[in-house]
Amino acid sequence: MSEHEITLTVNGEKHELRVEARTLLVEALREELGYTGANVGCETGRCGACTVRVDGDALKSCTRFAVQADGAEIETVEGLSEEGELSGLQASFKRNHGLQCGFCTPGMLLTAGTFLEDAEDPSRAEIREAIEGNLCRCTGYHNIVDAVEQVATDGGGESL
């Protein structure tokens, strides 16, 4: 199996690593670099638990090989809060009980946060569409929509 030298900048920190060509981005993040916040829920791009941001776009990191992300700026859930202070969206999830088991939460935060950057006064239906690719089995989504809506409406500080 051929190996490749790649560079990934994760939450502002630059990492050089060797990966097999078949190593998925989520595997590189979790197993090689220790960013275990992104979770593996399906390996088929359906559940969204592994969503991270790659060069600003929300992306399911099981759908890319690590070599494809060579040189990219990656943002994971670990980079959302600064010095222990929750981001506006994280705090809104907490306030609105937008998480239960928490397994989908990192991906949900990255997807919703990316959506909120460009969304203007989104309706609840638009929020639901935005998070459609992220599955949650605990909350029934109602409180997640509340949490996102509250940030969209009140500002709630920076979303991500």
Binding site: Y35, T36, G37, A38, N39, V40, T76, V77, E78, L80, S81, L86, Q90, F93, K94, L99, C101, G102, F103, T105, P106, L109
Partner: peptide, 13 residues
């Protein structure tokens, strides 16, 4: 919530 929102919580995997 905080460990789950920040990615610090450890699941078995």
């Amino acid at each position: 919530d905080i460990p789950l929102l920040t990615g610090e919580g450890d699941y078995t995997a």
